[in-house]
Amino acid sequence: MSLKYITPAERFKKYLPKDYVELVDYGPFGKTQEEAGPGNMGQFKELVEEHPMCSGCWMAYYIRLIFASLPNPEDTVTLGTAGCGRLAISQAAVPFIYGNYGDQNAMASGLTRAFRLRFPDKTKDVITIAGDGGTMDIGFSMTMHSWIRGEKFTTIMLDNEVYGNTGGQSSGMSPQGAILKMAPKGKDFGKMPATELARAAGCVYTVRMSPTNIKKAAKIIRRAIFVAREVGPTFIHAYTSCNIEYSIPTHEVFADAKAQEKDRFTFEEYMTDEAKEVIERVEAEEKAARMARKAQKTEAVN
C-alpha cells in the first residue's frame, strides 16, 4: 500500500521471486504515465500479465488497461465480486478484496472511510470493478446506496451483457431481444439505464463507452479516479463483450466493440461543475509536469 512497503532492501532481492523483483524495478510503481502507462504497454512490467479468461476476451483487455492507467497503483485497492472479471483482477499486483455477490460497493464505502481516518494526509484510491450482474442486478441496492451517500470512490462496470461466469443467463443489462440460455425466446425488456440511474443517485462523473481507443479510455479512467478523490462517487459503464455467449469470433471482437460505439454504447460523458474543476486542474498540472520533464531532457542532451 505504498512504495516504502513494496520496495525491498537491495541485499534481499536475490532471495525474492524474480517476478516480484522485476515488478519493483520495471513496473509502474512510482512512475509517470509516460514511463509506464497505456501508451507503452508491453515495454514495462505490467500489474496484470496473465489470466485464465477466454481467448479474445474484450473484458480482459479492458482490465489490463484499467491497471495500466492507475495514477498511484502503490496506493490503490480494488474490490470485486463473483464474475469473469475477478479472474484477472485478483491476479493483478494490486490489493484485491473479493466480497460476497454484489456487496463490493458496500465494502468500498467502509474501506474508503477507514482510509480517510487512518491516512488523513495520504491519498488512497478505492475502485470497485465488477460485471453487470454484480453491479446492477444482485448488487444494485448496495451500488445505489454508495452513490446516494456520496461515497468517494470509483465504480467501474464491466458490461458483457450476460451472466457469463455462470453459464450465460440474461441480466438486467442484456439488450432487449437477446437470445441467451435463460432467454431462449429473446429477452423481453431493455437494458437498465445505468448511467441515468448513476446521475440520479448522485454520481458526479459518469461515462458510458466502448473502450476501443486506448488513449481515450485511459483518460476516462484517470478522470474518474481523480474526481472521486475530491468530489464524490464516479461511474464508468464500459462495454466488455462476452465473445463466448454471444458467439463473436475472436478475430471480430474488436469490430464488434467498434460497432457498439454507434449503437448501445455511444460515448457519453457527464460531469458536475465541481468535477469539471478538478479535471481541468489536474490535467493542467499533468501537462505542465510533462512539459517540464521534456525541457529537462532537452537541456540534458544539449
Rank of each mutant, 00 (worst) to 15 (best):
S141W: 11
V227N: 01
A198M: 00
P8W: 14
I63V: 10
K294M: 09
A9K: 12
T155P: 00
I97D: 04
F44N: 09
F254V: 14
V94M: 06
P95A: 07
D273H: 09
T7N: 14
F153C: 05
E274P: 00
E268Q: 14
L70Y: 10
K124Y: 15
E252L: 11
P73V: 08
T81L: 00
T272K: 03
R208F: 05
I63E: 06
V94W: 05
F265H: 01
D132H: 02
G80Q: 09
S174Q: 01
P233R: 00
F12V: 10
L180C: 10
S146C: 00
T154M: 04
A36D: 01
F189S: 08
T250G: 06
A108E: 04
N243W: 09
Q104V: 01
L180R: 01
G168A: 14
E46D: 01
Q33E: 12
K297F: 12
R149V: 08
M142W: 13
A194K: 09
P249A: 05
G131Y: 07
E269C: 10
E261M: 09
G164S: 12
G42L: 04
P17D: 12
R64G: 15
Q260N: 10
E35T: 02
T240L: 04
P193C: 07
T123R: 06
V48P: 00
T123Y: 10
T195S: 07
N302H: 15
D132M: 00
A257S: 15
S109F: 10
G42T: 09
V231C: 07
D132A: 00
K287I: 13
H251N: 11
T154G: 03
P175N: 15
I138H: 11
P120H: 12
A238L: 04
E245F: 14
A114I: 11
A68H: 05
